[in-house]
């Protein structure tokens, strides 16, 4: 049997040619992908202009130096989570953002919290107006011992709104924004404590929204709630972030991962890492972050 002569060498040369072309294409594609990615990343960063800039923030309770040299930008219309072990200063930090610590006599602070370009700790700054712009929701639902309607309209009335149509509009809008309207619209004059825990917490969120804040601070808003109510609040946080800047302190890392776009990890009063949430939970940059989120300490 005579084998037909195979032009092996020729084929080899041709194959080499093809593989060079393929390699080139592959490299091009990688470069393109990387370029695309970095543009996307940049866009995200630039689009999200900071709503609040924290500059060299230090805080003390008496001699206790509870927050140390914190520099952080909170992006507008997005959710930022602050995580960290108990006692690391999360709540204190959150309360610095709307001057809620001012009420403690042994509290001292240095540094700046800049809201839309203005330091809220400036001498001329008005605490009431700061707290109107930066609303707060607490760990335990704390409705006023009043009706649902009175809870929502408490703030607007204090701020001088008297027009009944306007007040009705605020009532409906706030309850709708807090995803509570459908559950309570036929009993607006019921006592707020008759609501379930999850409903009470949404009522508190609606109450915060009624004065049309720009930033909403949430301090462990779900820690007193069951999983169903928690899921509702988390959905609500996502909805709110389309319009408001939301900053949430949470013990629950899965919750931070679920609801936030950015996460700051605070440890003994210092920001250890501030990163896009998916990066922080997949490939954290700092060993301390890794140890904390994987439960190796804390």
């Amino acid at each position: 049997m005579v084998m037909e002569e195979l032009p092996v060498q020729g084929q080899k040369a041709e194959l080499k040619g093809f593989s060079a072309v393929l390699k080139e294409k592959r490299n091009l594609k990688n470069v393109e992908l990387m370029a695309e990615e970095s543009v996307r990343e940049e866009k995200k960063l630039t689009l999200q202009a900071p709503k609040i800039e924290v500059r060299d923030l230090n805080a003390w309770f008496g001699d206790n130096h509870v927050l140390q040299n914190i520099n952080l930008d909170f992006k507008a219309r997005t959710v930022t989570a602050i995580i960290g072990p108990s006692g690391c200063g999360k709540s204190t930090f959150l309360r610095c953002l709307n001057r809620m610590n001012d009420i403690y006599p042994d509290f001292r602070m240095a540094g700046e919290v800049i809201l839309d370009g203005e330091n809220i700790y400036d001498d001329g700054s008005d605490v009431v107006s700061v707290r109107k712009r930066i609303g707060m929701v607490f760990q335990k639902p704390n409705p006023f011992p009043k009706t649902i309607r009175e809870n929502i309209l408490f703030g607007p009335l204090i701020h001088g709104i008297r027009n009944k149509d306007k007040l009705d509009e605020i009532l409906e809008k706030s309850l709708k924004a807090a995803a509570l309207w459908d559950e309570v619209n036929d009993r607006l004059d019921d006592y707020a404590f008759d609501l379930s825990g999850g409903q009470q917490q949404r009522l508190c969120i609606a109450r915060a929204l009624a004065i049309e804040p720009e930033v909403i601070l949430m301090d462990e808003p779900c820690s007193a709630l069951d999983p169903t109510a928690t899921a509702k609040i988390e959905d609500l946080i996502y909805e709110l972030s389309k319009k408001y800047t939301v900053i949430i302190v949470t013990h629950n890392m899965q919750q931070a991962a679920r609801v936030s776009r950015w996460t700051a990890f605070l440890l003994t009063g210092e920001i250890i890492e501030y990163n896009a949430t998916e990066t922080l939970f997949e490939t954290p940059e700092r060993k301390e972050t890794e140890d904390y989120i994987t439960g190796r300490f804390g």
């Binding site: 890392m253 899965q254 991962a257 939970f281 997949e282 490939t283 954290p284 972050t289 890794e290 989120i293 994987t294």
Partner: peptide
């Protein structure tokens, strides 16, 4: 356990 970071990886 919803592991994260090195555990997830």
């Amino acid at each position: 356990y919803q592991p994260v970071a090195v555990d997830l990886r």
